[in-house]
């Protein structure tokens, strides 16, 4: 095949092909369910063992006292982890090391904002849901 014919074939196939671009803000992004995104501890399951804090390579996890009106017999020390998403590197070591699988994981990625956030509000919302998401 001559180079010109080859070129023509390439041009024609590209005219009829779909654009490669993902129109991101208008279309949802193609994120697989495996993606390591936003994660936060479920207070109904957490036993306050602090293993995730010990293993966090970025020191993003702090142990905080549970709210005074909430008592969990499984959590005798009354503390739970709060993840600072500004420091978190999403390595999921906390998820891996947790002995009771208390972390709720998701593939949410669009966390850009005008300030940094932590997982406290999300964790407190899990109270009373009885471990269901």
């Amino acid at each position: 095949m001559s180079p010109k014919l080859k070129l023509l074939r390439e041009v024609i196939s590209n005219i009829f092909s779909r654009p490669a671009t993902i129109q991101y803000p208008r279309e949802p992004a193609a994120v697989s369910s495996e993606y390591r995104g936003l994660h936060y501890p479920d207070l109904n399951k957490c036993i306050g063992c602090s293993l995730c804090m010990v293993d966090c390579p970025a020191n993003a996890i702090k142990m905080v006292k549970l709210p005074p009106d909430y008592k969990n017999p499984k959590n005798p020390r009354g503390i739970y982890p709060v993840v600072d998403y500004g420091k978190c590197v999403f390595c999921y070591q906390c998820v891996f090391v947790c002995p009771v699988k208390a972390y709720i994981t998701s593939n949410k990625f669009d966390m850009a904002d005008y300030a940094t956030h932590n997982s406290q509000a999300l964790s407190l919302k899990t109270i009373g849901r009885g471990g269901k998401e």
Binding site: P25, A29, V31, G86, F90, F109, M111, D113, Y114
Partner: peptide
């Protein structure tokens, strides 16, 4: 700093999201 994009590293979509903000 005006916009923070958390992640290590964030996805390209998240970076575009940050730029839009």
């Amino acid at each position: 700093v005006d916009v923070y994009v958390p992640g290590c590293p964030p996805r390209p979509e998240a970076i575009i999201d940050g730029i839009l903000k």
